[in-house]
Design a protein around this nucleic acid. Structure first.
Lengths: 198, 198
DNA sequence: TGTACATCAGTGAACGCGCGTTCACTGATGTAC
DNA sequence: TGTACATCAGTGAACGCGCGTTCACTGATGTAC
């Protein structure tokens, strides 16, 4: 049994990590296996020792976002303390932060790859459903209104985060992009009751 | 001067129209020139009589959305009367409608192709800035508060529309997708002061 | 009205490139003795 | 400790396909006379 037990898993993880960055930045089609493998210091031929196909890798990249606890690195720069009592406003601020705006490679794929996801198979979509449900849950727990209205609000706040970032990323004018993020952040915090003035 | 004067322009428009549908549905890379030209009952070779390159066509497709008055056909199914006094709620309802959700081909590209746009050149981004500014203006004009707060709110409402649709399209569970649209619509209308209860 | 002609829209074969995938092979690693 | 070996990670040439782009050619159309 040559090569240590964890070697395969370790390299596999490295490939996924690099793939996620590249996919986030350029989408599925514009990234070659050679580039991905180079990120793990390997050549393209070895790819099939780890994955069945490129699509297979893609599904895995999408699926493991946020669901795998190991993958909190995605949110690394985005200091959210999930044990804190006011996670809600923290999530909103982090999601709509300048950092998340700029760090495309480690971005939430809902912002970086929504087109790809919508066109994707069931597996990827279901993974995203789970991610979204988790995000909405976290938001809802921080709301004062615990009724049906809270549920609706939490969903709207999530949409505000995603929509604000999607729009900001699509603008050429940087100032407008910043103002958009600010506007969405303000309204989202207000909606959550985490900020007094609009 | 064989072929009538309008012939070239007419065919060109037909190509753009078909391209927009296909790009919306499958993104840039997954659509071939042959398919696009087939939509205009032509073969692939003739393409270069109309456009310099595939990217060129793409830029044109993105750029002409909503800005060209001819292109209101994009919103055809989405009856919005721009002369009406309460355009705001109409836009919100139309944008987050089941119809817009289902009609991917004639969808707003901000929802169908946000990744592509973010990765695109200045031209496309600037075109989108204009579209967004127009949308925000329309929304703002329908708001009661005409101050700075109105500006912020109008932007948030736009983000709520886009974000709600992006999320809905990424869900596998149809019921959840519908509830998301509903939630965003409700909150957006409330934000605009176009609906009394949340 | 009819005929010759010039123009240019449209055709489809051919080219070239990139890239996903395959495969025979190399060589590094840990094990057995 | 050292040597032979089995395993399998990794290599890189080769294949095949799709597709963007080019190009020489066809043929439909309107004009001139």
């Amino acid at each position: 049994m040559p090569y240590s037990a964890g070697h395969h898993a370790q390299v596999r993880k490295k490939i996924i990590q690099r793939a996620r960055q590249l996919f986030n930045r350029r989408g599925f089609e514009n990234v070659s296996l050679a580039e991905i493998m180079a990120g793990a210091s390997l050549t393209h031929g070895g790819f099939y020792k780890y994955f069945k196909s490129k699509s297979d890798l893609y599904a895995e990249v999408l699926g493991c976002f946020l669901t795998d606890p190991e993958w909190k690195s995605c949110w690394e720069g985005v200091h959210v303390d999930l044990s804190s009592t006011d996670v809600g406003p923290q999530v909103v601020r982090a999601y709509l932060s300048r950092q998340h705006f700029e760090d495309v490679e480690n971005s939430c794929p809902m912002v970086a790859l929504p087109g790809d996801i919508a066109r994707c198979g069931k597996t990827a979509k279901r993974a995203f459903e789970n991610v979204l449900r988790a995000m909405v849950d976290v938001l809802e727990r921080s709301l004062s209104a615990k009724d049906r209205r809270g549920h609706t609000r939490a969903r709207a706040i999530a949409a505000l985060c995603v929509g604000g970032m999607v729009l900001a990323r699509s603008m050429e004018d940087r100032t407008l992009a910043d103002e958009l993020r600010d506007a969405c952040m303000g309204v989202a915090l207000k909606l959550g009751g985490w900020k007094s003035s609009a």
